[in-house]
Design a protein around this nucleic acid. Structure first.
Lengths: 332, 332
DNA sequence: GCCCTTTCTGTAAACGTTTACAAAAAAGTG
DNA sequence: CACTTTTTTGTAAACGTTTACAGAAAGGGC
């Protein structure tokens, strides 16, 4: 491996000068600069990043904690992060936290070991105290999920208002018995979506039976099973608003398995606008989240923090939008 | 930040002893070991990994090059890699290569800079010479795509035989006019799948018109458009074998848009068995690849190489299997 | 030519570990 | 007890950079 020392010798200058040329940080005379560049070229020199990291105590690397890369929503956000990172010379260390709650320790270890300069979490499914610690000791940014009561930069959509928007849409086009299949209710995001749904009903002075609200877990299977449950109610809903597209697809197929037509007999809508939502048949009415932007904004904020900038505003709310397709029975 | 020096002072021993306790590499008397452990605990010491990396010139990190994390196939393999890495104390640095061909330079730079000990590529879409260089200078492992003529450890399924298996299945259940929509034919994998298809036809002494073979690019849109093309042939096929599930879904919808029923009027099958393949309607007959295993095996090999072991066998072929669902019209 | 700035360069000390080597301590052996 | 062998410890030199500091060179003004 060629080192800076060898380059210095080859160019007939000191190591300091070589370093200065590399980093373009300080004035170097034209003549020496050229000699150095030539030497670098000749020896095919590449600086050892680890040594630089050690000296500068900056790694230009951010740890990204993803609950499940397999989930298209997360992988899209991750793509946004990665793209932005690429453009700015940062690197992404991946932490695929299948069961994040058991991995807290490991997570804190990685941070303490200085391998990364910052951390972006696509989930806030950890103890609040841990989140607080990470926020003050390291450069934390949350994406996708807002958490109450601590002041950490967060980028997400306004789940309450988008959920309200969706519910309003269903009300407007005439549905009166709207059920909701939520995500796990220990996740803020699920609670918010439920909240928005309730607000819309309240504003429209509509009342729904308790059984219209079912707690799922964002999975296809949950959507399927809970829909069977909803359909067997004495007075089944005429519309189902699922908190994820995957659950909505499960809902559609559960209904179809009972010979029920979508959207003729019942409307079913989702959330996220994953690619399949438009391919699926019937195409799903859903809420599109600006996943790539969420990712890049999160990375942008993380970089700002890592470079020492103080972030005054802590909530970054990006615009989602309602996408009306066939599954809600409203033809544009 | 607490350093090893402070721990040493606190415990009343030398830094070497502390290091030895940490790494469990050398004998340390019980008494001192305990003193050190206590001191570590008291000071909440965590070793600075970067410093260790520099000294040992090992980073326990592997660079994973993924063409597109958004693609469920890749994200599954990545999950396999990540899981195995986690278990063995390795880390994954993500390189999302949207257009890998333009990023060769960047890739080589990262390797030269010693930030990673090895590299796993989920694509071989780079110049062969580059691959060769990576293979000899760094610890390269290929996953998913085999490349001819260089001796780099590769883990994948046997695309030729699985494609032949699928085609045979279609022949067996009675189809005689089987078309194939391939991936990009500058990718080995696509060529292999095409090859398998042709072999099966050949063995069955079947001949198909040239127009039955269409080059796509694995995308839904390609599947859709090429199917429209196939259907408007004078003698349209009675079965379409798409080289990816996504293309198969496009094919299904293209057919449906023409009022053609699947599988009654035409069979359509895919490849990969992504989650949607079973949810989609009609459920897709497809080839299931052991994605998680591909990932973990690749990581296993990478670790072996990084730890200096010489890998004698260079091809690791994992078992795929045919999954028969509704879309091929064969009821089990 | 002299003095004062300004610009450029080199020396050497970090950064926080690991580890070769030597020295010290402990354990065996007769 | 004296000697040898084994085990445990500490000292200090790496690893390959960056950068504070001081010194040299160059430029400007008179």
């Amino acid at each position: 491996m060629t080192t800076i020392r060898e380059v210095a010798k080859e160019a007939g200058v000191s190591v300091a000068t070589v370093s200065r040329v590399m980093r373009e940080t300080d004035k170097v005379s034209k003549e020496k600069r050229e000699r150095v560049l030539e030497a670098i070229d000749r020896l095919n020199y590449q600086p050892n990043m680890i040594a630089r990291f050690l000296r500068t105590s900056k790694t230009r690397t951010v740890l990204v904690v993803v609950p499940d890369i397999t989930n298209p929503f997360f992988s899209n956000v991750l793509t946004g992060i990665q793209n932005y990172a690429n453009q700015t010379g940062y690197h992404v260390l991946l932490f695929n936290a299948v069961n994040i709650r058991n991995q807290n320790h490991e997570l804190m270890e990685m941070l303490g070991q200085k391998q990364v300069d910052g951390i972006i979490m696509l989930t806030s499914q950890v103890e609040k105290s841990l989140l607080e610690k990470m926020n003050e000791a390291y450069n934390l940014v949350l994406a996708c999920e807002y958490i109450d009561g601590i002041d950490v930069p967060t980028v997400a959509i306004d789940n309450i208002s988008s959920s309200r928007k969706m519910t309003n849409h269903l009300i407007q086009i005439g549905y009166r018995k709207i059920a909701h299949i939520s995500g796990e209710l220990d996740i803020v995001l699920s609670v918010d979506r439920l909240k928005g749904y309730k607000q819309a009903l309240y504003e429209a002075s509509m009342d729904v039976p308790n059984a219209y609200i079912q707690e799922g877990d964002f999975s296809y299977e949950a959507g399927y099973n809970l829909t069977l449950k909803l359909l067997s109610l004495e007075e089944p809903p005429d519309a189902i608003f699922a908190a994820s597209d995957e659950m909505a697809m499960g809902a559609v197929q559960a209904a179809q398995s009972k010979g029920i037509q979508i959207p003729e007999d019942i409307a079913i809508v989702g959330f996220d606008d994953i690619k399949m939502a438009s391919i699926f048949s019937p195409a799903l009415t859903t809420i599109a989240q600006p996943t790539l932007n969420i990712g890049s904004k999160a990375m942008e904020l993380a970089i700002k923090r890592m470079e020492g900038e103080v972030i005054n505003k802590s909530q970054y709310i990006l615009n989602d939008h309602l996408i009306v397709r066939k599954s809600c029975g409203y033809h544009v």
